[in-house]
């Protein structure tokens, strides 16, 4: 009986230790991803500055901004639902990151517990949370921003989904690890991006990706010169800081999903490299393009990328 008790406590202790290690791993992973996301945003600012023939801020500027914003003393809030919306807005993308294969970087494998549909629907929790907060904020600019953001979402989801479904049709699976396994890691000829007819789907989804990340020409939702930064109009201090963190996490999730589906992202490290490459391409376009009107952007998104991606999907299905 004595031994049994000892064994029992030992196993309890081991379990507790295991849970602790797991929690630490999760926290480290999320911290790492958000840090990389913020680093991407630093690259963005530096890159844009160089394109505009400026020196630009240091590459770690987003970290400074986040620290400053989170340390603000009295950010304005309207109601406790405002705070709840912001927490939901940051929590959603963080939960989403846990379902991406990037989590192998710290030896987790939660990404095997969900699939593409879950990721697609988990990806909207964040934007929805911030949209709720903007709505509670009660500024008409915020409402315009939300209206535009959701309109854009309707616009880019169609080509993006068509592109992703083409891969699902090709590989016959919704599981991310299987999609990875169907491609080679470093040989571009083995990527879905460069295979006929999937290249069409990839191009369609890639154009839509610009909208997913709300980079120009699809950044209508946060148009500072038109609608006073739209959704963010009532966000100050820590709320804005959390929004920056959410943006960083979402960047990693969106680009990671695209890298896994089209660029053969298999392990965490090569996926991160591909994320950087994708991001550089995206911000190159962002730096030189203007902004569409919301209706123009919607029309464009439902026309060209959709036609290209649909063609890719149909050719894949009927091949």
């Amino acid at each position: 009986m004595n031994t049994a008790t000892v064994v029992g406590t030992a196993s309890m202790g081991a379990k507790f230790l295991g849970a602790l290690v797991l929690t630490l791993k999760v926290l480290i992973y999320l911290f790492l991803m958000v840090m990389i996301g913020l680093f991407l945003m630093g690259i963005y600012r530096k890159f844009t500055a160089r394109v505009q023939y400026r020196v630009g801020p240091p590459i770690w500027q987003p970290y400074i901004d986040v620290i400053k914003l989170l340390s603000k003393k009295d950010a304005a809030t309207k109601n406790w639902v405002f705070d709840l919306g912001v927490i939901m807005g940051l929590g959603g993308p963080l939960a989403l990151l846990l379902f991406l294969p990037l989590d192998t970087i710290v030896g987790l494998n939660f990404h095997t517990k969900g699939d593409l549909i879950l990721i697609l629907y988990l990806a909207v929790v964040g934007p929805l949370g911030f949209a709720l907060a903007a709505s509670v904020g009660a500024s008409p600019w915020g409402a315009i921003g939300v209206g535009r953001a959701l309109s854009m979402m309707l616009g880019y989801e169609l080509p993006f989904i068509l592109g992703l479904l083409a891969v699902v049709a090709k590989d016959g699976t919704l599981l991310l690890q299987k999609v990875s396994a169907a491609q080679s890691m470093w040989n571009p000829a083995g990527w879905h991006y460069f295979q006929w007819p999937l290249i069409l789907a990839a191009i369609g989804a890639h154009i839509a990706l610009q909208g997913v990340m709300s980079e120009k020409p699809f950044d209508q939702a946060i148009a500072p010169h038109e609608i006073a930064s739209g959704i963010m109009v009532e966000f100050g201090g820590k709320y804005l800081g959390m929004m920056l963190l959410m943006k960083a996490a979402s960047l990693m999730a969106e680009l990671g999903l695209f890298a896994v589906f089209f660029l053969g992202g298999t392990t965490a490290w090569d996926t991160i490299v591909k994320i950087f490459a994708l991001f550089i391409i995206a911000i190159s376009f962002d730096a030189v393009l203007g902004r569409f009107r919301p209706d123009q952007a919607f029309t464009v998104l439902w026309k060209w990328p959709t036609i290209i991606a649909l063609l890719g999907l149909l050719l894949t299905v009927f091949a």
Partner: peptide
């Protein structure tokens, strides 16, 4: 290029320092 020092214009007072 004041952005060298992290100085940026903002759209609303809520975001400004």
């Amino acid at each position: 290029d004041m952005e060298r020092f992290g100085i940026m214009p903002m759209a609303t007072p809520r975001q400004a320092d």
